[in-house]
Amino acid sequence: MAKGAIQYAVIDAFAAEPFKGNPAAVCLLDGEEAAAADERWMRSVAAEFNLSETAFLVRDHSSAAAPLRFRLRWFTPVAEVDLCGHATLASAHFLFTTVLTKQHVTVEFVTKSGILTAKKVPAPENTGISGERLFIELDFPMIDLVECDSAEMPLLPETLNGAQVVSVWKSTTAGDLIVLPLILSVISSASITSF
Score class of each variant (00 low, 15 high):
130 S>T: 15
33 E>C: 03
63 S>E: 13
193 T>Y: 11
151 A>F: 08
45 V>C: 07
156 L>A: 10
82 D>G: 09
56 F>V: 01
162 G>Q: 06
117 T>Y: 06
144 D>V: 07
87 A>H: 05
134 L>Y: 04
83 L>Y: 09
109 F>I: 07
148 C>P: 00
95 L>E: 00
143 I>P: 05
38 D>Q: 06
72 L>E: 01
102 K>A: 15
72 L>V: 02
126 N>Q: 15
5 A>N: 13
185 S>A: 15
32 E>Q: 11
68 L>H: 13
94 F>K: 05
183 I>A: 15
101 T>C: 13
86 H>P: 02
126 N>V: 06
79 A>D: 05
179 V>Q: 04
9 A>D: 03
73 R>V: 03
39 E>L: 09
169 W>P: 01
14 F>W: 08
79 A>F: 11
25 A>R: 00
148 C>S: 13
11 I>P: 01
125 E>D: 15
46 A>Y: 02
86 H>W: 01
9 A>K: 11
118 A>E: 03
69 R>A: 02
33 E>P: 03
147 E>T: 07
45 V>T: 03
52 S>L: 09
80 E>I: 03
107 V>Q: 03
65 A>D: 13
108 E>G: 00
142 M>C: 14
11 I>N: 04
45 V>D: 02
174 A>T: 09
94 F>A: 06
193 T>I: 12
31 G>P: 06
64 A>D: 15
123 A>P: 08
61 H>K: 13
121 V>I: 15
48 E>F: 10
186 V>I: 14
78 V>G: 12
96 F>W: 00
90 A>S: 10
134 L>F: 04
4 G>L: 14
195 F>R: 11
98 T>V: 13
13 A>C: 03
110 V>R: 01
167 S>A: 14
112 K>H: 11
114 G>L: 09
42 M>H: 02
145 L>A: 04
99 V>E: 01
134 L>P: 02
75 F>Y: 07
97 T>R: 08
114 G>Q: 10
111 T>N: 10
173 T>A: 04
91 S>P: 02
104 H>C: 13
68 L>K: 12
151 A>P: 01
159 T>W: 03
152 E>Q: 11
22 N>I: 10
7 Q>S: 13
84 C>N: 00
103 Q>E: 15
68 L>C: 10
160 L>S: 12
40 R>A: 15
139 D>V: 11
166 V>F: 14
84 C>Y: 01
54 T>R: 04
8 Y>T: 08
109 F>L: 04
83 L>G: 04
138 L>Q: 06
142 M>E: 15
93 H>R: 12
83 L>W: 10
24 A>Y: 00
125 E>N: 03
152 E>S: 08
181 P>S: 05
182 L>C: 11
128 G>P: 02
132 E>T: 05
66 A>S: 13
33 E>K: 12
170 K>S: 08
98 T>A: 11
155 L>M: 12
98 T>K: 14
